[in-house]
Design a protein around this nucleic acid. Structure first.
Lengths: 223, 223
DNA sequence: TAGATTGTTAATCGATTAACAATC
DNA sequence: TAGATTGTTAATCGATTAACAATC
């Protein structure tokens, strides 16, 4: 096992390479160069080679990387050779979208349970699953060996839900609620915030606009 | 204007501080220390002070930061003092969730138009807006001064949709499709990939599991 | 052998953090 | 003045990148 630690930045790019390799495999490509893979992934070739070198020496000089072999190595490195069971808490608009999101099942993530506390939602069928009351969380997490909890509640409830997930034995949380949750340090929490990305876009837009106005003002002054 | 360049890593945290400050303001807090703000944002105090120092010297030694004043400065820095018009392309599950996502309007993002190419979806009302055909994109972008395009299509269509958005004059794209899009370098593209985050969680879970098994094996060998 | 491409080195760049002087 | 807390420095750490020897 090639087991030096893999940098976080590299781990974050492995899923991107994985997707590109799946496309290449579908297209019947047998090998790929770091140059071509870089173009597909939207990064540069040096980064691809450096990243892949952390997994081991899986390329062939003068030839490139074997698509299927690299695909397998990345899949294995990311832990995607096994199926992970997940539960979604909070079955609003976002929870529903996530429950039927194909990208999850395609990658071996199985949504095994849905939870809410709203009586109007409990019992409803969403994406082939019946929505359960949050009070059933602990039992179902144990019975269904749920490893990952997905928080899709309003921000006010995110902290409590995260705590209940941890209490139920979940060791990984994906947090879609626009709120920071604090749990024990051995629990892995990752956050996806839809509006943060928009705010970063706004920052850059405003910059561009400010530069454009300055240029315009300058032009009018005959600068 | 305090206009040294602000590091990307800092810009990415400003929305997190913003949310924490909004909470503090609601709770009636007048000032906040870097220590307390750090706890709310899930980072450390030195980082908060460093980040805020890029905006200017808005704190008071011995006292902390004025909540309302800092709120305003961050809002301004992020370009959130103006409303940005956005359009969502691809009105499937995710597009619908985004169309009714409150976090956008709360931050001054106005969803001004929805687009799809599926005749079954066009004409439908979603979140108070009628879904238009993608062919109307250019006219509507111009008329409604749409600055940000949100791509929520299947991956195969993401590149074409991105190109059409750029062609229509959009300078910022938020890409939710699980695909890399390549456009002109002056267009700002940000990517949110729901399944990438899950894959990173999987990586860490598998690591934890591997360590646990190794320890167990070691124990059984009487190590 | 000649051409292509990897894997690795080393330089560079950017981000994080602790520490503390400045100052309210 | 004494206590609290900022703003900034400087050390450290991690990520990126170009360059090229190794090697298919």
């Amino acid at each position: 096992m090639p087991n030096r630690a893999i940098p976080d930045a590299t781990v974050a790019r492995l899923p991107v390479y994985l997707r590109a390799l799946l496309e290449l495999a579908e297209g019947g490509e047998m090998t790929v160069s770091s140059e071509d893979l870089a173009n597909l992934a939207g990064v540069n070739a040096a980064k691809v080679r450096k990243d892949l070198s952390y997994l081991g020496s899986y390329g062939t000089r003068g030839v490139g990387y074997d698509v299927e072999y690299l695909l397998y190595q990345i899949t294995r490195e990311l832990g995607l050779t096994q199926d992970w069971h997940t539960a979604i808490v909070g079955i609003g608009n976002l929870g529903r979208a996530l429950a039927s999101y194909k990208g999850f099942s395609e990658r071996g993530f199985r949504i095994a349970a849905l939870f809410d506390v709203d009586e109007k939602v409990i019992g409803e069928e969403v994406g082939g699953l019946i929505v359960r009351h949050l009070d059933e969380l602990k039992d179902i997490v144990t019975d269904d060996r749920i490893a990952i909890g997905i928080v899709a509640t309003p921000p006010q409830n995110a902290q409590e839900v995260a705590e209940r997930l941890v209490d139920a034995g979940v060791k990984s949380i994906l947090n879609f609620a626009p709120a920071v949750v604090n749990v024990a340090p051995d629990v892995n929490v990752r956050k996806v915030d839809l509006s943060i990305e928009l705010q970063i876009l706004s920052f850059h837009l405003q910059r561009t606009q400010a530069i454009a106005s300055a240029r315009e003002a300058n032009r009018q002054l005959g600068g």
